[in-house]
Amino acid sequence: MADAAELPERLRHVYWIGGGTGAGKSTIARRLADRHGWRLYATDGTMRDHAGRTTPEEAPFLHEFLAMDMDERWVNRSPEVMLETFHWFRGEGFDLIVEDLLRLPREPCVVVEGFRLLPHLVQPLLAEPEHAVWLLPTPDFRQAAFRSRSAPEGRFVWRTSDPARAESNLAERDAMFTRRLREETGRLGLRTVQVGTAMTEDDLDGRVTRAFGL
């Protein structure tokens, strides 16, 4: 990988959309990419590849998670433990995101989206602070987004022995993650957009577009 001091300039063409789960990151990133002719890099789509590119020494939380069954992951642990030990929330594999981006041409611009974009990891890569924004969903918005994605029986929690408890644990973990993002972006002076149920997709698109100074 390039020297850390060189990374902001080499990634100047990248726009970053992080945030809590179910905040509309992928939708807005896709709209921006389509409108401006940008390349879209969705970090969710790279998780399997990145997991295969790590060793237990490089990503211990990831490999511990992979060894668990569904109940161990989502039912038997508290939301607090789930938050503190979830590998992507710990930043494991973030260096692989950066490696992927450095391999891409500098034209056109790239919009990167996903919950893996932790503020303290992205901030040192920014040549221009306005090239990053975090979407912070309210609990009502996040629940509405999840309900709209698929039928309940299609969600992975139904592969556990107690889907209701798994869903509750996951919702609380994600709420705590969003609160952590809010605190971290505030401390670092990074841009955020709160996403509520009264906000339309066009509203959110406009807010992110203005945050990026486009």
Rank of each mutant, 00 (worst) to 15 (best):
Met1Phe: 11
Ala4His: 14
Glu6Val: 09
Leu11Trp: 08
His13Lys: 05
Ile17Arg: 13
Gly22Gln: 04
Lys25His: 00
Leu32Trp: 10
Ala33Thr: 10
Ala33Asp: 09
Trp38Asn: 10
Arg39Gly: 06
Met47Trp: 14
Gly52Cys: 08
Thr54Ala: 06
Glu57Gln: 03
Glu57Asn: 00
Glu58Pro: 03
Pro60Gln: 10
Ala67His: 09
Met68Glu: 10
Met68Gly: 00
Glu72Thr: 11
Arg73Ala: 09
Asn76Ile: 07
Pro79His: 01
Glu80Trp: 03
Gly91Asn: 09
Gly91Pro: 13
Leu96Val: 02
Glu99Asn: 01
Asp100Ile: 00
Leu101Ser: 00
Leu102Asn: 01
Pro105Val: 02
Arg106Phe: 10
Arg106Gly: 15
Val112Ile: 03
Glu113Trp: 05
Val122Ile: 01
Pro124Lys: 01
Leu125Ile: 00
Glu130Ala: 14
Ala132Glu: 01
Trp134Thr: 08
Leu135Ala: 00
Leu136Cys: 10
Thr138Asn: 02
Pro139His: 00
Ala145Asp: 10
Phe146Pro: 07
Ser150Glu: 13
Ser150Ile: 07
Ala151Met: 13
Pro152Arg: 02
Phe156Cys: 07
Val157Phe: 11
Val157Gln: 12
Thr160Lys: 14
Ala164Phe: 02
Arg165Met: 02
Ser168Gly: 11
Glu172Tyr: 09
Ala175Cys: 08
Ala175Glu: 15
Ala175His: 15
Phe177Ala: 09
Thr178Phe: 11
Glu183Ile: 03
Glu184Asn: 08
Arg191Gly: 08
Gln194Lys: 06
Gly196Asn: 11
Thr200Met: 06
Ala211Leu: 13
Gly213Lys: 10
Leu214Gly: 11
